[in-house]
Design a protein around this nucleic acid. Structure first.
Lengths: 188, 188
DNA sequence: TAACGATTTTGACATTTGTCAATGCACAGG
DNA sequence: CCTGTGCATTGACAAATGTCAAAATCGTTA
């Protein structure tokens, strides 16, 4: 059941069986239906989630009421609003399920306790942070360097499943452009 | 001399004197003149720098030859191309000095060795990563949500020294807009 | 101090992208 | 099977921003 997560951890940090068991003792399973909001704006993200299967979205709503998608997560990825999780501050962002999804969860308290108890877990967290940083770095580069059209083409080339599995509305919001612009880009 | 750096570390992670001395034994001082490039595109960023005084810029050059500024660092901040530093991969980005600057530096090897030796140093690094992540998160939000004008006004309000100490060219490049647009925004 | 080079400003114009509105389409729930 | 709600498409237009070019200003160095 939780094997996918175990594999994911192991790829980032070697962990012995005892420690792994300790970690898994803090994990619970959490299944959600499509369109469920698992974290709303203003709530504290006090859980670390791992998405085993399905699709989740992290987004926020601007003052003008527009949805801006920060991140789309597919199978086999961590899902958390780090900025809220780290300091237990209210989250600006929502997390919802774009498809029926199978999640694991660990409480923030356990997560941080494990950091002190298990060096490999601390290494795991460090790697997560490094990857998250690199991802955002790329995101910024794309936003600053590429036009709407180029961003769409890059996504189509590098992550075609985004365009296949997601609605236009979501993809547009992820690319930072309007639905109409995306629709026009696609029809060329 | 290195007191500023010590204070900086201490604010993020408590460190006893012995560990601090160990850390400081890996530090060397590095002064650079305005306009010096301390890291060029294609080179590996194998040093962690800490800017005690002055101003440094992290930027890259697009295929069309445009400079895009990722980050401006003033007194009392770490300066490193993390994506290169972490994996010792060639850097996409340049680092140069916008003013005469006083830097400290630590080799990547020492930096990572200390992570294993000194838990507080590992905590320090974790905090740095968390802060860097939060900063980028913000940056993305601004780029996606705000217009050029709003981004300028926000910068003017929250970090007026950016506009005072930096040339228009640099500020524009940091905001992700053209010099001309910035010039027009300012004259209102 | 003079002169050069770089930066800034300004104008005219092109391009990209957003907004609004109307229509067509598709799917979920009764 | 019908129907309503949300999503996608298309057109017309507006707004924001970029590009190019010329003139003005500033700062540095010979």
């Amino acid at each position: 059941m939780t094997d996918i997560f175990k594999d994911f951890i192991t790829e980032l940090a070697e962990i012995n069986e005892q420690d792994m068991n300790r970690i898994m003792s803090c994990i619970s399973v959490y299944n959600v239906k499509r369109n469920t909001i698992i974290l709303a704006q203003g709530e504290v993200c006090d859980k670390f989630y791992f998405l085993e299967k399905g699709c989740m979205r992290t987004y926020y709503i601007t003052e003008e009421g527009q949805e801006k998608t920060r991140l789309i997560s597919f199978d086999n990825t961590p899902v958390t609003v780090l900025t809220s999780f780290i300091n237990l501050k209210p989250s600006v962002e929502y997390i919802d399920a774009l498809e029926d999804s199978e999640l694991l969860s660990m409480s923030q308290t356990d997560f941080f306790r494990l950091l002190d108890e298990i060096p490999s877990w601390a290494l795991f967290y460090r790697k997560i942070l490094e990857l998250a940083f690199a991802f955002q770095n790329n995101r910024i580069e794309d936003l600053v360097t590429l036009s709407a059209k180029e961003r769409y083409e890059k996504l189509l080339k590098e992550r075609p499943h985004y365009i296949q599995r997601l609605s236009n509305k979501i993809v547009a919001s992820y690319l930072g452009i309007s639905q109409e612009t995306l629709s026009r880009l696609k029809s060329k």
